[in-house]
């Protein structure tokens, strides 16, 4: 029997907390793959990201600079890491860090690190700020929205959209507001946390559905799995969810990939109205935290992404199991202070 090729995969998003990053789910998918012997390098921002310490996940973790430090600082750090680890594939999992990784991807390739990311244009087109224009142009249902820089614009939007108003942060978080005061409060809170602009969106009533999908960069859909949240945290995150059978949702993801020639993983957040119209509420340019459900349902998206990043041809998945449920849980790990100290003081463990 042939010996499996050894590969090293670096993954960010190890913050497996109540509003989790996708890193741990991505690692589990990659580790479940059958074709490679995988060595995992975790890339973290904080010393207390649980994924650093979880057994059987990252073999070694390095801290990397926050996205706000810029791409040069990130590159310097990755050069240091690459000298030691010889990373083959790097999978970034945060919206806020993606721009830097996309920008650096040619340099990373020169260093021997492959990524499988959308282009800067694809990344920008689906940004919250451009979502309405992008969806309108490509005939997707989308709620009306407006990008604003001051609370003085809110009263006009109340007249235009009515209540409730959805007030959204540039990268993350949203508040559903029933009064002008609530909207103003949400504006200031989101501005302080994520900066300007703030996006104000029309509220659409319906069933919230999420689709995790993977495009090969030429317009072909490698995988698309729709999920409905069964239990939602106060931060709006899925704590449990179930795979759905609905070809129209899979077709929606396929249409998105065809139109954009999307390269990499992404998540469509959809609100399906009573009359069946799928409104695109948001497009996240990376795998969602629930991506391991796609593995459980028979479509291992993280594994497929790694293969494509390594230049392998991947056959599109054509079926998945409906009615597969994921349930997240919390777990207290016990570690020694020395482990924490190692990460905290030296930025690696």
């Amino acid at each position: 029997m042939d010996k499996k090729r050894k590969i090293t995969v670096a993954v960010t998003g190890l913050n497996a907390v109540d509003s989790p990053g996708p890193g741990i789910a991505v690692i589990r998918g990659v580790r479940d793959g059958k074709d490679y012997e995988v060595h995992i390098i975790g890339l973290s921002y904080e010393s207390l990201e649980p994924g650093i310490y979880m057994e059987g996940m990252a073999d070694k973790t390095y801290q990397i600079p926050y996205p706000s430090a810029g791409s040069e600082a990130l590159l310097n750090r990755l050069e240091y890491i690459q000298e030691k680890e010889k990373i083959d594939v790097l999978i970034p999992n945060f919206d806020a860090e993606l721009y830097n990784f996309i920008k650096l991807s040619p340099k990373l390739r020169e260093m021997g690190i492959e990524t499988f990311l959308p282009t800067a244009e694809q990344f920008e087109a689906r940004d919250k700020v451009n979502l309405f224009a992008f969806c309108s142009k490509n005939n997707f249902y989308v709620p009306r929205d407006k990008t604003i820089y001051s609370t003085s614009e809110l009263p006009g939007l109340v007249k235009e959209f009515g209540y409730p108003l959805v007030v959204k942060g540039k990268y993350y978080e949203a508040s559903i507001c029933q009064t002008l005061e609530q909207a103003q409060k949400a504006f200031h809170k989101l501005e302080a946390k994520w900066g300007l602009p703030i996006i104000v969106q029309e509220f659409i009533t319906g069933t919230e559905i999420n689709i995790a999908a993977l495009g090969d960069g030429t317009g072909t859909t490698i995988s698309a799995v729709p999920m409905r949240k069964l239990f939602i945290t106060d931060k709006g995150k899925a704590w449990a969810g179930v795979t759905l059978e609905d070809q129209s949702l899979v077709d929606l993801a396929k249409k998105f990939i065809k139109v954009t020639k999307w390269k990499g993983g992404f998540e469509l957040e959809v609100m399906r109205t009573v009359d069946g119209k799928p409104y695109i509420m948001e497009i996240n340019p990376r795998f969602p935290a629930w991506i391991y459900l796609t593995v459980g349902a028979g479509q291992n998206q993280p594994e497929a992404l790694v293969k494509m990043a390594l230049g392998q041809k991947v056959k599109p998945y054509d079926k998945y199991e409906v009615g597969k449920v994921f349930i997240r849980y919390s777990w207290d790990m016990i570690i020694d202070i020395a482990q924490f100290q190692q990460v905290s003081a030296f930025g690696e463990n």
């Binding site: 069933t207 559905i209 999920m227 409905r228 069964l230 969810g241 179930v242 759905l244 059978e245 609905d246 399906r272 409906v322 009615g323």
Partner: peptide, 18 residues
């Protein structure tokens, strides 16, 4: 046709997850 029903009468609608 795709509504799943168990013997105990538990119903699952795979189209919307209800």
């Amino acid at each position: 046709a795709n509504i799943a029903v168990s013997e105990s009468g538990y119903l699952f609608n795979p189209m919307n997850g209800d």
